[in-house]
Design a protein around this nucleic acid. Structure first.
Ligand SMILES: [Mn+2]
Ligand SMILES: [Mn+2]
Ligand SMILES: [Zn+2]
Ligand SMILES: [Zn+2]
Lengths: 126, 126
DNA sequence: GACTCTACTGGGAATGACTTTCATTTTCAA
DNA sequence: TTGAAAATGAAAGTCATTCCCAGTAGAGTC
């Protein structure tokens, strides 16, 4: 049975939607509006649990100063603008067949794939 | 003209070879063997400069507690074992044509691509 | 209800990678 | 030679994340 606080944390990430990416501090701020006494530590613990359960995905974008979380969903890549820091979803994933080949060739097993692009977003290109 | 210290830092990364990935602390330790007075700050500054010059590439592997550096070379992906933490090169890169398509579709420009796989290495699978 | 054992909680301290600051030294072109 | 700009290292600062620990809430049992 998922503790009430973790449930709340999940709802916040879940309601943020698939294109959004929240940091623990942002989640903390949102959660405290509904449960003022909540501690930041609990947010970190909750996110860890939800990650282990596969309910949320952690995003480690180079250049960002904090991890970001999103509800688990279809595999996709991310783009981060080096100028303004915005993070966008990119509909791209490496085909399962390719992953299988790579794993076989190298002798390891792959259970996670992280793809991040860096550059200038359309707004910052002008 | 590249300062002498930065030159030394570059040599250390360069000599480590293409499959190796050194953290700033490791580079610091190696550099101090040849130049005992060197400061860690200078190592960070040197790596930043070398990165700007395109001579070294920074690696931000999720799960690792520090950035890693390698000499710039052919684009490739990385694999990190979740059990033992080893990082391996993986000969895989997204075709330039695909990158161009993605950039065009989203309206941004891509100048960096970071691909990391996570899982179990062959040693840790047994 | 009362009891018990465990999981959960939150505040504060600790950690550790990285950055900033600043006074001093080195470089190098004029 | 000389003066401005770049480089240097020690020390202090920042900040996300983790650790610690003494309470508390919950689920299950009687
Ligand atoms: Mn996403
Ligand atoms: Mn590599
Ligand atoms: Zn932008
Ligand atoms: Zn391993």
């Amino acid at each position: 049975m998922l503790p009430k606080n973790y449930q709340l944390i999940y709802e916040i990430v879940e309601e943020s939607g698939l294109g959004h990416h929240l940091t623990p501090s942002e989640i903390y701020a949102l959660a405290r509006r509904r449960r003022p006494g909540l501690g930041l530590t609990t947010v970190y613990r909750g996110l860890e649990r939800l990650r282990d359960l596969g309910l949320v995905s952690e995003l480690n974008v180079p250049g960002a100063d904090a991890a970001a979380y999103e509800p688990s969903g279809p595999r996709h890549a991310h783009f981060r603008c080096k100028r303004c820091g915005t993070i966008e979803d990119v509909a791209f994933a490496i085909p399962a067949r390719t992953l299988r080949k790579l794993a076989a060739a190298h002798g390891f097993t792959i259970d996670a794939e992280r793809i991040t692009f860096g550059g200038r977003c359309s707004a910052c290109s002008a």
